[in-house]
Design a protein around this nucleic acid. Structure first.
Lengths: 245, 245
DNA sequence: TTAACTAAGATGCGATACGGATATATGTCA
DNA sequence: TGACATATATCCGTATCGCATCTTAGTTAA
């Protein structure tokens, strides 16, 4: 586009064009570990492997709208933090035909993550194993979470392992200068929960006082005045995320 | 994609699909100011406005390959730092038909920037006016650079103003933790030149000793032993960027 | 030959942020 | 009422940063 000569003589139907899809990395943190929701493929190609939920982009549909639609239809989730991740365009990434896919990152609080699992029986949770391995991030693997044999590496379909790896990397990078961390928490949360989420994503332990200071000094946290319940020890203050400015 | 049922019954030619294009933000720093290379549109739509060089993605062509091809054909540049920026998918972004565009950021050293201008007469340089306006970045405008009447705001075609704004924002964000800054410099450069590039992109002055320390402590700079020439004062040491690790 | 000039490069210092250890507070439970 | 577990606060040594200042090494011109 953006070149007049070519376009003015361009017949929209004259040339074959790649198909355009959107794939979603549905991420959440469960039991202190990052997880993603995957679909098991039942047909060729890559039958038996695990894939990210996705779908084609309609002609009258924004990319963001397509991501929201897939979030709704494939995960039964009305709203979530959605952000575009990267566009994957390798020629042979799908053996059937040329498909370029715009990957989106969807961040779910633990509650929404579980509800999606309950509501959509096709979805399966996977643990994302992140070895810290330095700032750049080491290898990323999706692990099964079954009771009987949890922790086995899952084979991912297409280039979805790359997409998953990029998702966790991006999340890591944005975690402490942006507000993405709060998208993984309920509306009210304690500082410990916030730290747990950060530690899960980063794959390493953080210093508690320093973490508290940083978070409180940022000015994004509003104390609710109430405290968490159900503990057998001193209950922590509940905070709410208040959008900066 | 990635959903078996849908795909197995999907006829590649059955549904209309968006066209897929790549647009390039060709950025460089000239005279201490960030600039971009634009094409003046001569036909409708947006005739007379300025546009980013771009083109459609071929069926057997990677997105990166398409970006490289456009860099070569439209700017006459064989190699440059190229990175994917964002994919723009608003439905009405092009009035003729639905075009989704993957925007790429191309970083050119001053030399390549000028050579592209000389070799491709259609290209025109624009100054990107960045008002610092806080960390998030204020409004971004493309300004003309003509001798007679420089500094006038240029009207950009399509959503290319958004793309340009995102490009400078992305560059800013990555500037001091990544190596993108070096892509805007020749192979050998002085610390002052490096600082000038950073200041141009950030739109604000930086502290000299602190900047030197940070850059040298990072360990990415290798002294060449030789010094810059042509100055009437103490010549500065020339450094070379040595890829970390 | 030498002094003025200019920017490179180095040094010193106060403020700030951070990791880490430790101390105190506050709830539950026996 | 006291043990217990965790939240919350405080203290301190260290690394980093902004900033001012000083020194160095070239050219230029008297």
């Amino acid at each position: 586009m953006s070149e007049a000569e070519f376009l003015s003589t361009y017949d929209p139907a004259a040339y074959e064009r790649p198909a355009l899809a959107v794939d979603l990395v549905l991420m959440g943190v469960r039991d202190g570990r990052p997880g993603a929701l995957l679909l098991k493929r039942t047909e060729h190609p890559h039958a038996g492997r695990w894939a990210l939920p996705g779908g084609f982009v309609g002609l009258d549909e924004t990319l963001d709208a397509a991501a929201e639609r897939i979030l709704r239809d494939k995960a039964g989730i009305a709203r979530a933090h959605l952000e575009q991740l990267y566009t994957f365009g390798a020629v042979e990434r799908d053996p059937r035909m040329r498909i370029v896919s715009v990957a989106y990152l969807a961040l779910l609080p633990e509650r929404a993550f579980s509800e999606a699992l309950d509501g959509m029986p096709e979805l399966s949770p996977a643990v994302i194993a992140v070895s810290w391995a330095g700032e750049a991030g080491g290898p990323v693997a999706a692990l099964s979470t079954g009771r009987r044999a949890g922790g086995e590496p899952l084979g991912l379909a297409f280039d979805h392992a790359d997409i998953l790896a990029l998702a966790i990397l991006r999340l890591r990078g944005k975690l402490d200068y942006s507000d993405v961390g709060f998208a993984l928490l309920p509306e009210q949360f304690t500082l410990r929960q916030l730290q747990d989420v950060h530690e899960a994503i980063l794959g390493k332990a953080l210093n508690k006082p320093a973490f508290r200071r940083r978070m409180l000094d940022r000015g994004w946290l509003e104390p609710t005045g109430s405290r968490e319940g159900g503990t057998s020890f001193r209950p922590a203050e509940l905070y709410r995320f208040r959008r900066p400015r």
